Computed example of a mutant assay.
Amino acid sequence: MAGHSKWSNIKHKKAKEDKKRAKIFNKHLREISVAAREGGGDPDMNPRLDTAIDNAKSDNVPKDNIERAIKKGTGELDEGDGRYEDATYEGYGPGGIAYFIEVTTNNYNRTVGEIRHIFTSHGGNLGTDGSVGYLFEQKGMILVKPESHDEEEFMLNAIDAGAEEIDTDGEFFNVTTARESMYEVRDQLEEAGYDIESAELIRLPMTEVKAEADVAESNFKLMDKFEDNDDVSNVFTNMKMDDETLAIAEQMD
């Protein structure tokens, strides 16, 4: 699934753009708040929170914002915007491409209405729970800055740490792990001196669907609409992300 690793990198780079900065800050802060509420406000005792904080720092989220999000999650601070919860939605895009969407919302009715509208206005449809979820497998994805590290040595260290798959696009080492071992692999790589850019749980398609150019372009437009929605945390599809398809995405920037 190297293509989906490359697609994750493209999305990661897009999120660094100034026009996306407010959106990515908001995404990080919601994740921190939910992680703190579910596992407590001490990152040393809460791997999800620890990872969320590291990811936020990597994107230059201010320390004060991070601390405020933790307090919101633990209940020490109430800013009157309600309690955020994780939720998922499933559906189909143009050409029958399957979509699995993760959101963090304080209003389920608003969010499901917006998700349905985005689907229907772009040639897709919102499905029921379980309609496409079985097509995806949850994995850990860790992006590591190569810097001056030897690639072969890194791969050996990553495998020893528990990585399932490693590839590189020249900008990052992309490390895929089992869902349950992502935090442990991240910690071991960090302890070995590697600079972690980000670590997150993703959903990889177990089988991929090759889309013609026009269908691929329509789906990338749909993905962008979902990514622009404040409640959406992640968008996963089973569209085959080969070089030809990824070139379409890069040309659309």
Rank of each mutant, 00 (worst) to 15 (best):
K20D: 02
E114F: 08
D86S: 13
M223G: 03
F100Q: 03
A249R: 11
L77W: 07
K6S: 08
N238P: 07
A22D: 15
K139C: 14
S181W: 12
K225T: 09
E76W: 02
K23R: 11
K63A: 02
L126A: 06
G93F: 02
E102I: 05
K19G: 09
I166C: 13
K71F: 01
E197Q: 09
T74F: 00
N65L: 15
R68T: 14
N109W: 14
F136W: 00
V132I: 08
K23F: 13
Y84D: 02
D81R: 07
S233C: 10
K13M: 15
F25T: 05
S198A: 09
L135H: 05
A178W: 03
Y99S: 04
R110W: 10
T237K: 00
R203W: 03
V175K: 00
V175Q: 01
I53W: 05
E151V: 11
D64Y: 14
G75V: 03
L126M: 11
E200Q: 07
N174A: 05
K225R: 15
S33W: 09
F119G: 01
K210A: 12
M239E: 07
G130K: 04
H149F: 07
G95P: 00
K210V: 11
G193C: 09
A52G: 13
A2C: 09
K19D: 09
D253C: 10
K240M: 12
R179P: 04
E102P: 02
G193W: 06
Y108A: 12
V209F: 15
H149T: 12
G95M: 02
E147K: 15
D54M: 10
I142M: 01
T74L: 08
R68H: 08
Y194A: 01
D187V: 05
H4G: 05
M141K: 11
A199Q: 00
E76Q: 08
K71S: 02
K16R: 15
D81E: 12
N106L: 07
N219T: 10
Y84P: 04
T104M: 04
V132P: 01
N60M: 10
N26H: 04
G127M: 00
I118A: 00
E184H: 10
F25W: 12
A36W: 03
D42Q: 06
R186M: 06
I10C: 02
N125D: 12
D228C: 01
P205N: 06
I202E: 06
D78A: 01
R179T: 07
L246G: 04
I115N: 03
D150N: 10
M1Q: 08
S5D: 11
D187T: 00
S131M: 06
L201G: 06
F25E: 09
K210Q: 14
N157A: 14
Y92P: 02
H122M: 11
L49F: 04
K19A: 08
W7V: 13
L77I: 13
K71A: 15
D242K: 06
Q251Y: 11
G41T: 04
K6Q: 15
V103K: 01
H149E: 08
M206L: 15
G162V: 00
I32R: 04
T105M: 08
G82Q: 02
I166A: 07
K14P: 03
L246W: 02
